[in-house]
Write a protein that binds this DNA or RNA. Structure first.
Lengths: 218, 218
DNA sequence: GTCTATAATTGGATAGAC
DNA sequence: GTCTATCCAATTATAGAC
């Protein structure tokens, strides 16, 4: 049942020769995101990572530190590589549609839903998680949307008295109760209204409210 | 330290002579809403309720049943006694303001935030909670809003192609990221923008998007 | 660093007296 | 129905060999 007894043969049979730390973090991520903090044991994590429990404690001081490392990592990994340079302030509808679609696809992804659930669940015990998540996700998203709205306002294609407020309203308009239905795992939540329809309707409403005359009609 | 040794003297010293069942449910509610399912022990609940652990098990089959009873009870207790008969389809702004204000005050209340957190946390382990919560809260709220929107559309004060969709957009518009900031317990979340400002802005945007000509300007 | 084996504590649930 | 005292399983964390 053992792989070697004479030397540390680095034979990469099939599993990637990732470091033990990476194996532990990967196993912990999957377990925590699936079951939360309390429902997961260090034994499970060690077994899934293919190491002994003592090894886990050699890399992380305890369960709480491991949990914090996993969550902080996931928060950072979420909103990376998302640039908005390709947006055209002249084509408001296309730009808003892209922003809305990207937002909705992100928050409805299984990993994001699981992360959302677990952070809300543990923010009382680990208050720092709230700040970490907010800064890594919603705050960055709002900033990007507001940046576009400012350029559109400057270009005269949108009439916005308060771009920060408008960005929040846009996010809320797109989200509606869709994210909540998915967070609650309601049956048929994935089939109810398609992402395309929700996005199109939200963009339409936003443009009706803030678009200049020429854009108000589609 | 004991109250009696010779007979069950029913002296109501100070604590209300509520039934043991009520004491247990009250203690369990406070503990579960504060710490979630995993972080609370039956010992704690029994101690806070002022009874022995065996008594808890005499009233509830186990921890999971007690948890389900507490959560189901809270879900039902939330949206009771809320009628919308006093809304005037002719005064759209006043009616929407009242609906929005009621919604926001409800979802930002400490109990509602705690309930929201714990249900999302445990919906994976107890899938029925998602359905129970949705039906008791968001679904009823959407229905009430849609009912008003239909009357307003019939009165010709709002131009709505899809009242159900419009109701969802209205809820999202009011919520924005405010509820999330409170769920994450971000410092200063309570002071950021006041409820009145958020409500007024959301109603304004909604009327700009869907109001008939005479109502479009404020 | 990594493993096996184990210590030490906690927590869900129950037995039996009253 | 209620209590005290206890059982038993699971869990976090560590000791000691290699």
């Amino acid at each position: 049942m053992h792989t070697s007894g004479h030397s540390q043969a680095p034979l990469p049979s099939q599993a990637p020769p990732a470091s033990k730390t990476e194996s532990i973090l990967a196993a912990a991520k999957e377990a925590f995101l699936a079951g939360g903090f309390g429902a997961v044991s260090m034994d499970t994590i060690a077994r899934e990572a293919g190491v002994s429990k003592a090894t886990v404690y050699a890399h992380f001081a305890g369960k709480e530190e491991l949990f914090g490392a996993v969550i902080g990592r996931e928060c950072e990994r979420r909103f990376t590589g998302l640039s908005i340079g390709e947006l055209d302030p002249g084509d408001v509808r296309a730009s808003l549609t892209m922003l809305a679609r990207r937002f909705l696809e992100l928050v409805l992804s299984p990993d994001a839903l699981a992360l959302h659930r677990i952070i809300l669940a543990e923010v009382t015990r680990f208050p720092v998680l709230g700040e970490v998540f907010w800064r890594a996700g919603p705050e960055r998203n709002l900033s990007q949307i507001e940046t576009f709205l400012q350029s559109a306002a400057a270009a005269g294609t949108l009439a916005l008295p308060d771009t920060r407020l408008a960005a929040e309203q846009f996010v809320g308009l797109v989200r509606g109760e869709t994210q909540l239905r998915h967070l609650l795992r309601l049956e048929g939540a994935t089939a109810m209204p398609g992402i395309d329809e929700i996005v199109a309707a939200a963009v339409d409403t936003f443009i009706h409210a803030f678009g200049v005359r020429a854009l108000g009609r589609r």
